[in-house]
Design a protein around this nucleic acid. Structure first.
Lengths: 230, 230
DNA sequence: CGGTATCCCCCGCGATACTG
DNA sequence: CAGTATCGCGGGGGATACCG
């Protein structure tokens, strides 16, 4: 992006922040992604060359640092400046949650992104030690993105798009929109069940304690948001 | 800008906020500009057609409202949503002030913008009722943008680029960079005088009370910033 | 896995002129 | 003063292939 030729701090900030994909890259890093392909997974529509280009620019701008250790794969992390810029991302997200809801289009409800997001916010500490499988069925989606399984085992959460072969403990049957709306706090699990847009099938105990382990979006959860800023 | 196809509130926010010039338009409105040509004056490099286009988009997005009253010229104002988005602009500005200083280029120090900004932050209440003329001389600038006069009269401040014909009460002799650095708080008037990059000539009383009437950038002044958000 | 290289299209945006 | 109309280009960025 060409600059603005203004000394105003807003202009100088925008020359860095207001490029396409930049807020999403920082968001991914705030959520814990550190490797190139993790960042890609959080932004599947972004071409690898463009991601590479942005990372270089953000590195040059002092927002991101690339860490290359002997024999390990490269990692990207926010610098102190980047963490500060994260507050701008957070504010923008909170604004979007409150004011841009009506601009959501059907194309926005990609269950891949939703599941990737849910995966990393599951609170495994609330689970028994044994393996658990949680199944999601999105009735509105074509077969390629209709079914997902989260396999929780010993604190790790794996996301599968094929039946993992283990018994399923809990199944969500719903649409991608309803699930995303729950995720963002526009509706609640309780409410979605009541109006028939969500069906939960499986272990009673898992259902009962769902608020203990199901992690909502960071923008829905003030405490998690606070943590992501520190 | 094409969208991101993500339900994430950051993405939805960025689809509105992360367009070229948008933060600067909102900044201008936060600083009190309400008419088309005021917005232009704060962003002289922006073409009128693009400003028109942006205003339409921001209106459609619920950020800006256009007010057309009988026989009066059109005005633009931030909606509640827009004022909320102003907090994002403010955060971005504070970030830029802290972290993007090193990216300032000589082209960024446009004295037109600086004077336009200074003009609207002069605290006229600290002045005597009589007319005052403050003169700025930017030694580094070509004649077209070397000299400016602020004519303060009865609470109004006029910015002139030609000698207004009245006696000058105070003169700033400096460079556009030094003046902008003072404006943003990177250095102080006292310090600039001491190291010889700024010379103040004129009435002793005006010099002595300069901190009472010289308004710094809103990003330099936490109180003014607070006020702009409410 | 972690990127580069290349190609090409499209459209964002800058410039300018013009109008009510 | 408050915009609209038009035109043309530059390069941002999407798509894909490829390399270490």
């Amino acid at each position: 992006m060409k600059g603005y030729n203004q000394f105003c701090p807003v202009a100088k900030g925008a020359e860095i922040f207001n490029e396409r994909w930049t807020p999403m890259i920082i968001r991914e890093m705030m959520c814990g992604s550190r490797r190139f392909n993790d960042l890609r997974r959080g932004n599947p529509m972004m071409s690898p060359s463009l991601l590479s280009q942005r990372l270089k620019f953000l590195e040059e701008a002092g927002v991101v640092e690339k860490i290359t250790r002997e024999g390990e794969s490269a990692e990207y992390a926010l610098t102190e400046s980047g963490r500060d810029l994260g507050e701008v991302v957070t504010r923008l997200g909170l604004w979007g949650l409150k004011w841009a809801r009506s601009r959501l289009t059907p194309d926005d409800y990609d269950p891949n992104l939703l599941m990737w997001d849910i995966r990393r916010r599951i609170d495994t500490s609330a689970f028994p030690a044994q393996r658990l499988v949680i199944h999601f069925m999105f009735r509105d989606m074509p077969s390629s993105r209709r079914a997902y399984w989260l396999v929780v085992d010993d604190g790790d959460v794996d996301l599968c798009m094929k039946f993992p072969g283990f018994d399923v403990d809990l199944t969500f049957i719903t649409t991608s929109k309803v699930m995303a709306d729950i995720w963002m706090g526009y509706t609640s699990i309780r409410n979605a069940i009541k109006n028939g847009t969500l069906t939960l099938e499986g272990e009673r105990a898992l259902k009962k304690d769902i608020d203990d382990w199901f992690g909502y979006s960071v923008f829905h959860d003030p405490e998690a948001l606070q943590a992501s800023l520190s």
